[in-house]
């Protein structure tokens, strides 16, 4: 063969290196700067009683894990949707999946405040928030899939997605009109997204859900590769398209739902990270894309989280704002430099 088949291990290594770097930076920077040496001492167990230990173990490590879990899962759900619809504009936000998650959470917050009163509202468990958010995502994604089966036109599908987003937002607005001020405040803060307030139990749930979703996606990576040629070809190659469609619905809803439950509706990561990764590692092989997208999504959110609380700032900026503020120019400049997107 005259031209060599490209190998992507180098690209994966670069992404892995960036990921580790972003993780360490995230642990180190903040209102108190912790030197790398102290981080190493804490991680390796040499220091168990310093102030660095408490800051890292109680606050920064859980937050860093939350950032990489949320970033990775949103990016992966975007990748799955772009592959499934063979559409570069697909993503949890564009197709209304994030809005569905928001609706799920809004119904839970406002519904419990309206119908069950303040006590029930205060006692909502983290699992119920994840489940409400995932159920909201699943309902919207289910509608999108049903429409996609009837409607072959991609533009039509995107318009339906945007309409669903608008429709769910309208329900949230109407619900909020009847709910208590506390519930409304809690919902508004939730939409800003916060990684720092996630408690260990919530983090464990989120990691478990996202690990389950990512494992499922990896298990289906061969089928996802087949789907890049379209459903007819995939079916003729032995892909159980109907079964996998349902599985992918569940996985995407879990990924988008679990992360949105705690980080709020982050619009940018799911759409942009798969493009970013394909520009750096131009392959359609999901066995490479899935780990790459997980790492890059995590890296992006770790960096954004670091920037949202750089030394000198009082408090932290909303993570949702920072993500788009940083990520959008990166993606636009990459697209302009390569003069195309790959999808």
């Amino acid at each position: 063969m005259t031209n060599k088949r490209p190998r992507f291990s180098f690209g994966l290594m670069i992404l892995g290196f960036n990921f580790v770097l972003a993780f360490i930076l995230n642990l180190s920077l903040g209102s108190v700067i912790i030197p790398f040496e102290s981080i190493w001492k804490v991680i390796s167990g040499q220091s168990t009683d310093s102030s660095a230990f408490y800051i890292l173990v109680d606050y920064r490590l859980p937050k860093a894990f939350a950032a990489l879990t949320v970033g990775g899962s949103l990016a992966l759900s975007g990748l799955i949707m772009q592959t499934f619809f063979r559409n570069p504009l697909a993503g949890p936000f564009v197709l209304g999946i994030s809005s569905g998650a928001s609706l799920g959470v809004a119904v839970l917050f406002f519904g419990s405040s309206i119908f069950l009163g303040g006590v029930a509202f205060q006692n909502l468990s983290s699992l119920s928030i994840i489940l409400a958010s995932s159920a909201g995502s699943a309902v919207v994604f289910g509608i999108i899939l049903t429409v996609a089966l009837r409607l072959k036109d991609v533009m039509g599908l995107l318009i339906v997605g945007l309409m669903l987003g608008s429709f769910t937002a309208a329900i949230v607005t109407i619900l909020s009109n009847f709910s208590s001020a506390e519930a409304l405040q809690r919902y508004v803060f939730w939409t800003y997204g916060s990684l720092g307030n996630i408690n260990p139990t919530e983090l464990n749930y989120m990691i478990a859900f996202v690990a389950l979703g990512s494992g499922g996606a990896l298990w289906l990576s061969k089928s996802l590769n087949g789907l890049l040629m379209g459903e007819s070809y995939a079916k003729s190659m032995g892909v159980a398209v109907k079964k996998n469609r349902t599985l992918l619905l569940v996985i995407t809803s879990l990924l988008a739902g679990a992360s949105t439950a705690f980080a709020g509706p982050i619009g940018f990561v799911g759409l942009a990270v798969p493009h970013l990764v394909r520009l750096l590692i131009p392959t359609g092989d999901h066995r490479i894309l899935i780990p790459a997208v997980l790492m890059t999504g995590g890296t992006l959110l770790l960096l954004c989280d670091t920037l949202s609380q750089l030394p000198g700032f009082e408090g932290t900026l909303p993570i949702n704002g920072v993500t788009s503020l940083i990520g959008a120019p990166i993606l636009v400049s990459l697209i302009l430099s390569k003069r195309k997107i790959l999808m």
Binding site: G230, M237, D285
Partner: peptide, 26 residues
Amino acid sequence: SRNFSGILTGWDILRLGRHPHNGWYG
């Protein structure tokens, strides 16, 4: 149908031909 993902190379398409014969991980 030519509604394929543009990221595929000829090789990517050819290797998909082995899809029914190889294991779960392809």
